[in-house]
Amino acid sequence: MELSFQTVLSQVMLGLNNGVFYAILSLGLAVIFGLLNIVNFVHGALYMLGAYVALLGYTMLGPLLGKPDFHLNYWVALIVAPLVVGLLGIGVERTMLRRLRKFDHLYGLLLTFGLALIIQGVFTNYFNVSGDAYDGKPESLEGAVNLGFMLFPKYRLWVIGISLLVCFATWFVIERTKLGSYLRAGTENPELVKAFGVNVPLMITLTYGYGAALAAFAGVLAAPIYSVSPVMGSEMIITVFAVVVIGGMGSIMGSIITGLLLGMVEGFTKVVYAPASSTVIFLIMVVVLLVKPTGLFGKES
């Protein structure tokens, strides 16, 4: 097969588009893991919830309020969904995860797995598994931009841009500000940080809420691209787990870069050998486990 430079480049760009979702989600997992020491299995379901807040806000909120012409604006959804889901996350942390802190970390994984089943199950009951289209894409993001080598949809370009911005802002706050230094200190030694008068439990709650909000934010961004379905989260989370194993959860920048790179590799595989594109990330995980078991950015433990 003749591979033109242009086809490769355009698939890699589309891959980058998936990559920013991997980056945001694995970043959220890494932030939560850093402070709470749990793997947030419900992350995929929160991402799905974010997409559904946007979808239902657009289609059902109006009729529900008695104003059939009302559609929740995309930009408003981009703020509201993370807030709603973030608050839900805070509730989960306060009522459930907090009680598990004394026990083995595996219980956190099991609890969040149960929550993921509940959320996914409820949505499977009311919505089509094959998914619904979200029609609320703002007009200003319709159309395509000429990148020189390809016509790229404006909306996808926006998704890549805003996601990178959010990722790097999160990195900046955690690695370069005073608040971030508290967080990092809390990761290393919570007892000592408590002794300095920092409210560590509150910090943990807010961190979990922020991670949940990030997932919902990604969900809203995804809604106009992929169809919104109850299983979109569980399909995503398993891939993101592989991303996290490859990158290691120890480094914020590491998880961002790994997510972006793997998205592009996946896009590249689509041109070279399409059937492998759904498994290539898992195969890379196998290679990384063989060569550098701690992950690309992992620290020796």
Partner: peptide, 13 residues
């Protein structure tokens, strides 16, 4: 699925 998930949560807690 919801019931199974609920049992998971109750059991862990």
């Amino acid at each position: 699925t919801v019931i199974i998930g609920g049992i998971f949560v109750v059991c862990v807690l």
